[in-house]
């Protein structure tokens, strides 16, 4: 190849090259070519952003101050497993909710609460002997469930006790006395009177359970619902604030013959 021809070829190639570079760099349609993914574990191998720690600090101090506040004292361990179809903590839980809601409900409806009924699973954590702090109450009741009163006919009330019998579990309740013969319910008293299946009753529970939680279907389609707009946790906190020493024991609400 002679040198002149080579120079021309080279020049032409250069021009074409520049042209092609310009064309292919022009803004155009973009499509995903490659996707890479990675799960990054957040652990102590990572550095911390000190400005975030600093930002959180005043909230943390305030929060810990509130959460560590001592409300009352319990001379015994409060647990949900220390009785037969009842428990110290479950009894306390149901009794407190009933006591705290009573005047609210009376104001709202002019009626009184007959029974309080909750779920065993809702009693989330024991309270150890000693000082009871706000933190203990949050662990006992971490959810925002609100209290409500369900007006139920006698048939539905019977279903409630059937549920209690069938589940054979210490679902917390207050206001009733259930006598068992073996695993079967023999008799039921509500407010110290024999249960009357022809009568309507007012049952305190949480919105979670009334809306079908733990398959407490007897709470569905009630005669009437009364929302108290009062959280279960607030009821517990309000009660403990007023108490110096918590007194609770297993009692005769469940009798097993």
């Amino acid at each position: 190849m002679n040198a002149n021809l080579y120079k021309i070829m080279r020049y032409r190639l250069l021009l074409m090259g520049i042209f092609l570079v310009m064309v292919s760099c022009k803004k155009t349609d973009y499509k995903v070519k490659t996707i890479k993914a990675e799960l990054i574990e957040v652990n102590d191998q990572l550095p911390t952003d000190s400005s975030v720690v600093k930002f959180l600090e005043p909230y943390k101090i305030q929060m810990e101050d509130k959460i560590n506040k001592v409300l009352a004292y319990t001379p015994i361990n409060l647990t949900r497993t220390d009785g037969n179809l009842q428990s110290s903590l479950g009894n306390l839980y149901a009794d407190i909710c009933k006591i705290q809601s009573d005047s609210l409900f009376r104001k709202l409806s002019g009626k009184t609460i007959d029974i309080a009924f909750f779920n065993y699973g809702g009693v989330r954590q024991s309270i150890p002997e000693g000082n009871v702090t706000v933190s203990d109450i949050f662990k006992l009741m971490p959810f925002e469930n609100k209290l409500l009163v369900v007006e139920m006919n006698g048939k539905k009330i019977q279903e409630l006790f059937n549920y209690f019998e069938e589940k054979n579990q210490a679902h917390p309740f207050s206001g009733a006395q259930i006598t068992f013969k073996g695993k079967k319910i023999k008799s039921i008293k509500i407010n110290n009177k024999a249960f009357d299946p022809e009568k309507n009753y007012y049952v305190l529970t949480s919105d979670y359970l009334q809306h079908g939680g733990d398959h407490m279907d007897f709470f569905k389609d009630p005669v009437k619902l009364y929302a108290l707009d009062y959280k279960v946790r607030d009821a517990l906190l309000d009660y403990f604030k007023e108490k110096d020493t918590v007194k609770v024991k297993l009692d005769q609400r469940v009798i097993i013959e």
Binding site: D29, K31, K33, T34, K36, L39, I40, E41
Partner: peptide, 27 residues
Amino acid sequence: WGLNLGRVDFYFDDARNISAKGKSIIV
């Protein structure tokens, strides 16, 4: 609870450079 952070990287090319097979996913 912020125990992990998810990360997905997308690389885009000029549509004309993407082969008929399309994108490759490396996970």
